[in-house]
Each structure stands twice: as structure tokens, then as C-alpha cells.
Design a protein around this nucleic acid. Structure first.
Lengths: 221, 221
DNA sequence: TGTATCCATGAGAGCTCTCTCATGGACCCC
DNA sequence: GGGGTCCATGAGAGAGCTCTCATGGATACA
């Protein structure tokens, strides 16, 4: 499941795409003009954008340009009626990840969307960010983002946060946490884990780390 | 400049591609059959592959399949005479990053190749390891590897090491280092940089960070 | 309700990290 | 060689991090 933004002013096509992609299990939103599309894209609420070139207010090239200028790396699949090499090249060099000329087969669009989502997942998994709902952990800068607000983590807090986020919904015993976040395979005879869970809760929000009495702790996605 | 592998059995097309891509400054190799193409691709000597589907020995789908099965993530642009939705989808779902049907415009192929190389660069830059000769800096675990031996770095040492490794052979002034590794745009009036260069030298080996009298420091790759 | 167990948290010791400062050595130029 | 500038480095202050410990509250269960 991915969150897909469709920016397309022809209702018939937008509806067709929305229907098809929803049927694949994606969460789809549709917008009909360029400026609104850009805003939505920048909101961070989507994983991929399908972008038409001929749009009201500002055209697709401009949307793409602004999006990249703002630093967004959201995958963008450009979709247009103009089938010229010049446009294709412009879009691709302008930061699009793929380009399809109308008329196109839905199966092909779907396949191309899947490739971009797959790449994104791979990148996210390797680098970037560990996400769970409104919580994001930037593995590179070691910062935590919760509902848009960022905070710094100490080395140990980061290790613990990473372990919890990598096992969402799963109960982890103190021994497991000591092993995974501290690298200890023995019981230090103290309550370090409890203390650090306490520290993390202050930054993450108390409700997100649930204590399972007698068992350990669980991160709530 | 990228190292591009062309796997194509039609000499005329292979030569045309090789010529065009070489003219763009890429280093191009051509192979005419599937098995040889797979071997070359797995050698790790290339940054991207342009792959024809109809090939002797084993076809392009099979090459792609084996390549991905071996864990390679090399970007692959599939190029074929068969213009069917079924083939397009098969190739894309099978691990291709892009698909063009012949006849195609060279400008479009070039643009699509550039997109894949750009993505790859981005990923390389973000993830993994920063390498320079026998020195490697793991951006994920923040450990330094020198001639096989590993050592831990403090946060500031890591920041400084990263800056130096990202500018191999380049003289960086104290002001530049303060800016890039400390985020300071002013002179703190102390010799922090000197001190941290000293710390790094202990872990990196003295010879690898050269001091350029009156100018700053330079990392020797 | 009473009791035992389990958990949350404030206080604080010890350590590491970061930075400053002072000193002495290295280097350059005349 | 002398004098001045630049750099390397040991010592140490202060801050933050990591962990321990003790206390009191929460929870489960008879």
C-alpha cells in the first residue's frame, strides 16, 4: 500500500487512474490544478505523484521544478498527451522519474509506478528514514521526528529507538533490548532499560511505548 | 562519467548506442550474448546496463532474473523490439528500472539513462560507505576502517572525517572545516580544528591528513 | 483489602566528549 | 642563525551521557 497523489485536470482520466490504483490497494488522492498539486506534494503525505503536464494555474514542468527546488525527492511519474522527444527529455532531466505519453495502457503505468515504489522502499530500508505512522527516525542524522517536531537523541536513545521502530507492535523483553540496543548478552543487574525507555518516552510521547507487565515493552505504530 | 554495459546482439544498434554514449563521456562496453552479458554485469565493473531482450544463449528476461537473484541492484534499462504491454510489464516487474521499445529516439534513451544514474549517485552518496583508498567510513555505524582495522569515532570526529573524505586531495581551510563539520560560520577564536585533526590522525594515521601551512588541511586518498 | 511484585522516576556518580588554553616545536624568510 | 609565525599536543574545565540506586506508585492476585 502506498499513498499516491494524482495531479490531473481531465476528470475522466483522473477517475480512471484513481479507480485502478485504489483497486491495487493504494490510498489515492486526486487534485486538478498545478498549484494545489504542488502544495499537496510538499505536504509529505504522499509516497508518489502521478503528474500531468497540461494543467491549470501552473503546468507540470513548473510543479516538478518547484518540488525539486524545495528538496523533495518524491518519485514522480509524468503522464502527458504531448508525445514529443523534447518534452520527454525535459521532464526526465527536470527531475521526473518516469514519463508516459497518452494514450497508455494502465498495466504499463501500474508496472512503472511499482518500480518507483519498489526503489523508494529499498532506499528507505537501507538509508533514510525508519518510519512508523507519524514517527520517523532519520538514520543518517540520528534525529527523531514526531508529528512534525524534531528532537535530538543521544547515542543510546537512538539505538533503543531504532530497535523499537524495527519491531513495531512486537513485545521486546528487557533481555532482548539489552542485546539489540546495548550489545549485552548478560543481565547488568540494573534497570537501565527502564530508565532509557523513560527518556525515550519524553521525546516520543508516553503512549507510543507501551509497557507489557512482566514481559517487556512494545512500540505502538 | 559512468561505466555502461550494452548487451545487444544487433551490431548496428550496439555500435550506434556505444558511439552516442561514449560521446556523452561514458565508458562503454558492448557484449552480444546473454550469458556473457550476465557475467559482465555481475563483475561489478559497470554502473548501468542497457539490455536487449532478444539475445543468443539466454534472453534478456533470464539475464535480468539471474542478475537480481544474485543480489545485484545495478540499474537496468531494457530495450527491445517487442512492443507489447505484456513484455513491458514483465520486464519492469522482473527488476528492470526502465523499458523502451524500438524504434526509440536516442535523446530519450539518454535522458532515461541519466535519470537512473542520477538516482544511483544519490543512493550511493546517502548510504553505505565513504571510501578513499584503504580508508572507509561507514556512514551508518559511524565506524572508521583503516587498512582493515576498525575504530569508533566520537560525533565530532565523525563529522570531521566525513568532510575530509568527501573532499579528497582538496585543501580545506579551518574556516571551511568549521563551517562544514561544526556548522559554525564564525571563528570561535580557538584551535578546535587543530585539536580534532590531531585526534583523527591518531585513528587515521598521521600521514593521511596533511597540513598545508598557512592554508589548512588536506586528506590524502 | 492486603501483599507481593513490577514499574517509573529523581538524584547523583563516573565517564566521555568537546572545547580552550598554554607551551614548545616546526617551519619560513631574511 | 635569528625572529616571527604557524602548528601539535598535553592538561584540564565544563557539559552531557550513561548507568546505578532508592523510593514510591501501580498492578495483579488471593
Amino acid at each position: 500500500m502506498a499513498r499516491i497523489l494524482i495531479v490531473e485536470d481531465e476528470d475522466r482520466i483522473a477517475a480512471f487512474l484513481a479507480k485502478g490504483l485504489s483497486a491495487d490497494g493504494h490510498q489515492v488522492s486526486t487534485v486538478a490544478d498545478g498549484l494545489a498539486g504542488l502544495e499537496e506534494a510538499l505536504s509529505g503525505a504522499f509516497d508518489l505523484m502521478v503528474l500531468d503536464i497540461g494543467l491549470p494555474t501552473i503546468d507540470g514542468f513548473e510543479v516538478l521544478d518547484q518540488l525539486r527546488a524545495q528538496g523533495s525527492r518524491m518519485p514522480v511519474v509524468v503522464l502527458t498527451a504531448r508525445d514529443s522527444v523534447h518534452d520527454t527529455v525535459s521532464a526526465l532531466e527536470g527531475g521526473a522519474d518516469d514519463y508516459l505519453a497518452k494514450p497508455f495502457r494502465f498495466a504499463e503505468l501500474r508496472a512503472r509506478i511499482h518500480v518507483r515504489l519498489r526503489q523508494q522502499d529499498r532506499t528507505d530500508a537501507e538509508v533514510g528514514e525508519l518510519r512508523s505512522g507519524s514517527v520517523g527516525l532519520d538514520l543518517r542524522t540520528r534525529r527523531l521526528r514526531v508529528d512534525g517536531r524534531e528532537s535530538d537523541l543521544s547515542a543510546r536513545e537512538f539505538a533503543l529507538a531504532e530497535v523499537l521502530l524495527r519491531h513495531p507492535g512486537q513485545v521486546l523483553s528487557r533481555a532482548q533490548l539489552l542485546d539489540l540496543a546495548w550489545g549485552m548478552d548478560f543481565d547488568p543487574g540494573s534497570n537501565v532499560v527502564d530508565v532509557y525507555v523513560g527518556y525515550l518516552r519524553k521525546k516520543l510521547g508516553s503512549a507510543r511505548v507501551e509497557t507489557v507487565r512482566g514481559m517487556g515493552y512494545r512500540f505502538q505504530p
